[in-house]
Each structure stands twice: as structure tokens, then as C-alpha cells.
Design a binder for these strands. Structure first.
Lengths: 328, 328
DNA sequence: GACCACCCTGCATACGCATGCAGGCATGCG
DNA sequence: CGCATGCCTGCATGCGTATGCAGGGTGGTC
């Protein structure tokens, strides 16, 4: 930078200003500096800038599993939004262990301006602890101590149940896991809606995660449940259920209707395309970034929670109940 | 750090050494410093460290599309490997535009110790340019100017063809796109193997990318081709082909056999599970990181190319050819 | 008992940029 | 024409660590 200054016949501080506060430098001076910089192939050193400013221009994103399309789509949106706002993204895959996630979060938080936690497997206490030591925003989860954006499930789930009820389904299996406990409860709304529309609910909950294999396992129990429709809490399980049913020789939506939640690309890479409760992942990601940047600007502002509306997208996996034998 | 030094009764430089070169400090001194650091909740400032060392402890990873499971799996492995080696991962999603990717690469390269390019859509010249301005390693691609790790396709593709030929298929459709041109050519080996085993080859190549939708489109052309088996160059297209065929009322592997390449989790989240040419993505990712770290250590070392063996994994999507009408 | 070698620690400075402050200049107003 | 008001720019210093160098101390050796 000193070299550029010399080449342009100005001081180092002017060069610095050209790059960080262009408006404070007269146009012709600026051009002269930029020209010199171009000639010398100079680019500001981010590390030095970070040290001097106390800001890295970097955001951290923690996800439990990069490969899960739900998180993959969030990563994609977050990355683009962050970059659009002039920030770089540091990514970390935490796995399912709360302790690991917490430790990683501390480490990543240290070298970024703020932390985005997508579907964290942590306790409220851990999240609070992190939020106290730096800007934090939650995506697809909620906790008292930090900003958050997540899907508001009640209305959407009611739509799902109504859709199924209208098709003539009177008994439904609902597959959910407990590892998503931080996600605002979907279950109560499901209960309520079932009561409202006179639908019997069979819950298939477990301490399991919402994986493909658990979906296959769940599918094995469906035929004996007497239900004619299945709601899976994300596309991984939904695919598992679909494969499980196919393997049994059952057809969707002929024998069973299937509804998923999230609406990642996987909802359409299967035949029949899945009817889903669409969750606006793009908005969630973008909103998460905005919340975090806002918190970075104003560390002491009031905490904001941002529930986003979901919507029912009817595709091919739901239809009128067929003649299910309900084999023992 | 100065505070910690005072609290521990040592100098700032000793504290620095405790964190960066622990072995050069006597054990009891070290303990005293660590204790003081713990008490004051001190953690070294990465930005300052980066400035002083000229190293950020950060690697950049560029992928064309985060959501594609192929890249998602690479991201996951790379992230873990990098972290295991004491580095943090900066992620960037480039999209398909070479220019964008190049610009992003320059930007990310500036703030990291090295760059990992997974399936880059850039020209050799661009890659060379990047490699000249900093450590670079390619994953799943090859270019003269940079270290690289990629799948060696010839042997594997031959196995695939042999497998299909052995099942009795004598005419095969091969779906590939040109956007993966940087991937070491698979086509010649396919041609050769087909010749070797007396199989007719119908190529369905295009300037298109290997997306789900293009797979569906390809499926429409399959029945009229007279072929009884399809090879799709990745799981996205394979899913598209599978869905397209299902939509036509054709069954896999009853009417058509289907083989995919890569073996991401998607190969098994479909029924029937896909027979695939397995590409060791985990090894590729880890190797990529190792190559890059090596290059960072030794910027002038000889360039290394690392082809990895692939292997045929037979699942459910291939079988003996059925009675295909070949409807006009 | 003297000397040498080595280990550990402190001192001083560099890393590259940002920014508060003050001074120089031009413009506008009275 | 003199002075006030801004606009630009340069000066000096700070950001938090790392590290070459030198000095003090220790143990070992002859």
C-alpha cells in the first residue's frame, strides 16, 4: 500500500481511504490511486484490515449435516446473501453432537463477525452462552437468547391435514423425530388440525433423526396402522417412506398418500413428485443473514424472532384413499 | 495477551509462544500462562495472528453448486479434513459461469492460504492464472498448471459396460453433458469398452448440464433408441431418467437397466437402488486438502496429479433386458 | 572449579491497514 | 477584500501477535 501511495504521489492513508471509504477522496485522486494499484497489482490485505478494524467481514455458518439437502439449500442461499452484502462465508459441519457443535461454534465465532446456527442441536443454555459472546442468529430454530427465523408450522400443517381430509383420508401416520426439538413444535398443530377435521392420528415419533433409513423403517409399520396417508417431517424420511412402500409393492398415491415438509429439490426428483408443505428456505437463509448483520451493527438491539409462513404445494403423491387391505 | 502476561508474571512473547509454539516453553511456565488465560477468558486473535504470520489458517473451497449432492459430499469431507488439519473452511458457490467462478476465486484466494476448486467451470488458462497467484488444487478435474485429484474412469467404465453386456444388453444409451468437460474424458473409455464387448452405443450428449430435468428429457428418447440400458453420468440425471421412465410407465430394471456414476446418497434414496460406478468422493476430498496443504508448505514442488480408482457397485437398477417393444 | 552448551525468556520490532486529528486550500459570504 | 466554512489530504499512532536476537540461568563436562 505504501508503494501504491508512492506511485500515485499520495500518502498511505489516502490509499487506504480509496479502498475503504472511497467517497472521502476526491475523484481524480481516487482514479490516480486506483490506476497505480492496478499497475502494481495491489489488493488490500484482509488480515491487516481485519486487525485494524476489529472486523473480519466474515460470517460463520454451522449446520448439522452439509449433505442433507435442507441444509445444503440453506448454505447456498446464505452464501449468496452474505456475499451480496460484502461478507465471506465460513462453513462448519457440526454433526449431531451438541458438545461438538458448541465447541465448533466457539472456535468459528472467534474468527468471524457473527454466527449463523442452522438447526442447531444445542441446548438453550449453549445458544445463550454463544449469543453472549458474540452476534448469533438461528435459522430454522428458536431460542430465547438469540435472533431467529423459522417456519411457522401451525397454519401450514392445518392446510396439510385439511387437504388429506378433503381427499377422504380419515387416519394418518405422522413421522417425526426428536432431534429437531428446537424447531418450533409442529405436533400440537397437527393434533389440533386432526381433531378439527375428524382425522385419526398415528404418531410415529422416535429419538431417531429424520434419515432415509428411518423412513424405510417407518414404512414397514404403515400398512398395519390402518392409515391411508403418511406425513413425513422432511424429504429424507419421505424418500425413505416412499422407497419402503415401493419395496413392499405398494403404490403412491394409489395405496397410500404421502406428504413431506420442506420442499427441497428432492421433492421433485422422485416419482411421484411429492406433495409438500413448502418452507421458504430461501427467505429463511436470507433473513438469517439480515438478522445477523443487523445484530452486528446493533449488538444491544431487541431480540427479533421471525416466523415465516409455509404453504401447501400439491403435487402427485396425494390422492383419494385406495382400497387398502390393512394386512395384519 | 498483555494482560495474561501480566497475570502470569511473564512477558507477552512468552504468552504468544504458549499458544503458537507450546514446546518451546517450560511446562510449569506454560501451565501458569494457560491458567491465567483461562481465568481471563483469553483467546488469541486470529486476525492479528494472520497478519503477523502471513497465514490465515483458512482454506477456500469453490463449488459450482452446493445443493448438488456430489459437491455437498465433497464439501463435507473437505471441511472435516481441513479442520482436522487445523484449518478453517471458507465456502463459495460459483454457479456455472466461468467468469463468476474466476472472480470469486480471486477474491477468496486473497483471504485464504489456498484454494480448492471442485469441478471448476474455468478454462485451463484461468486455473493457471490462479495457480500462479497462490496455492491451488483441483478436485474432480484436471488442468496442467495445478495439483489435482480425480476419478480414473477408464477401468470403471469398462466394468460397467462389461456388467451390462454380461446381463445381455447389446445396445446402450449414454447420457453426458459437456459442462463437465474438465473431468478427464469418460467417453473414449466407453467407446472402447463397447467395442470390446460388442455393444452398440447411443450417445446422448449435449451442451446441457447434468441436471434432473435433462435426465427426464433424456428418458423420453430412450424407448425409441432401441437400447435396453442407460448410463447416466451422475445421480441427478439418473434420477431424472428414472422419473422420466416411471412417468412413461416403464419399469427399472424390468424394461430398462440404469447405471449411474458417483454414488452419492441419492443412489440409495430411490427405488430401485441404483447400480453405480462408485467414485471415492471421501478420498477425493481428503486428498484434495492434503495436496493443497502440501503445496502451501512447498510452493515450488512438482505438480502432482492423483487419479483415484473407481469401482462398480451393483444394486437393483440393472438386470437382464426385458421385452422392450421399442415403440416408434 | 571453570567453562561450554543449551534451554528458556524478555526485548524490540514488524506485519499492513484504519482512523482521529490537524493543517492547507478553495469557495462563499458579508 | 477579509474571514468563515468545508472539503481533502497527510501525519502519527494503534490494532494483537510472531519472531530474531540476546541475555540469564542451568546442567554437564573435563
Amino acid at each position: 500500500m505504501t508503494d501504491v501511495a508512492r506511485a500515485a504521489g499520495v500518502s498511505q492513508s489516502t490509499v487506504s481511504r480509496v479502498f475503504s471509504l472511497p467517497d472521502t477522496v476526491r475523484a481524480d485522486t481516487r482514479d490516480r490511486v486506483l490506476e497505480a494499484a492496478r499497475r502494481l497489482e495491489f489488493t488490500p490485505n484482509p488480515a491487516a484490515s481485519a486487525l485494524a478494524q476489529g472486523r473480519t467481514g466474515t460470517l460463520g455458518l454451522l449446520v448439522p449435516n452439509v449433505v442433507n439437502p435442507y441444509y445444503a439449500e440453506i448454505i447456498k442461499v446464505v452464501q449468496h446473501r452474505a456475499r451480496a452484502k460484502g461478507h465471506t462465508l465460513v462453513l462448519a459441519d457440526t454433526g449431531d453432537e451438541p458438545e461438538d457443535g458448541f465447541a465448533l461454534a466457539r472456535a468459528v465465532g472467534r474468527q468471524t463477525d457473527g454466527l449463523l446456527l442452522a438447526g442447531p442441536r444445542m441446548t438453550d443454555a449453549m445458544v445463550g452462552e454463544l449469543a453472549r459472546s458474540g452476534p448469533v442468529a438461528l435459522i430454522g430454530a428458536e431460542a430465547p437468547g438469540a435472533d431467529s427465523v423459522y417456519a411457522e408450522p401451525a397454519t401450514g400443517m392445518r392446510q396439510v391435514i385439511r387437504h388429506l381430509a378433503a381427499l377422504g383420508h380419515s387416519r394418518i401416520v405422522y413421522v417425526d423425530g426428536t432431534l429437531t426439538a428446537r424447531d418450533p413444535a409442529c405436533r400440537q398443530p397437527v393434533h389440533d388440525a386432526c381433531a378439527e377435521f375428524g382425522v385419526d392420528l398415528v404418531e410415529q415419533l422416535g429419538p431417531f433423526d429424520l434419515t432415509f433409513d428411518n423412513g424405510v423403517a417407518a414404512a414397514d409399520l404403515v400398512p398395519t396402522s390402518g392409515a391411508t396417508a403418511v406425513i413425513a417431517h422432511n424429504e429424507m424420511v419421505a424418500h425413505g417412506v416412499a422407497c419402503g412402500l415401493a419395496r413392499q409393492g405398494r403404490s403412491v398415491p394409489g395405496d397410500f398418500s404421502l406428504v413431506s415438509v420442506d420442499d427441497t429439490f428432492m421433492a421433485r426428483t422422485i416419482y411421484p413428485a411429492l406433495t409438500v408443505l413448502h418452507v421458504p428456505l430461501d427467505l429463511m437463509g436470507a433473513r438469517g443473514v439480515d438478522l445477523l448483520l443487523h445484530r452486528i451493527e446493533d449488538p444491544d438491539g431487541a431480540i427479533r424472532h421471525s416466523p415465516l409462513p409455509t404453504s401447501l404445494v400439491v403435487r402427485e403423491s396425494t390422492g383419494r384413499p385406495g382400497s387398502v387391505s390393512g394386512d395384519v
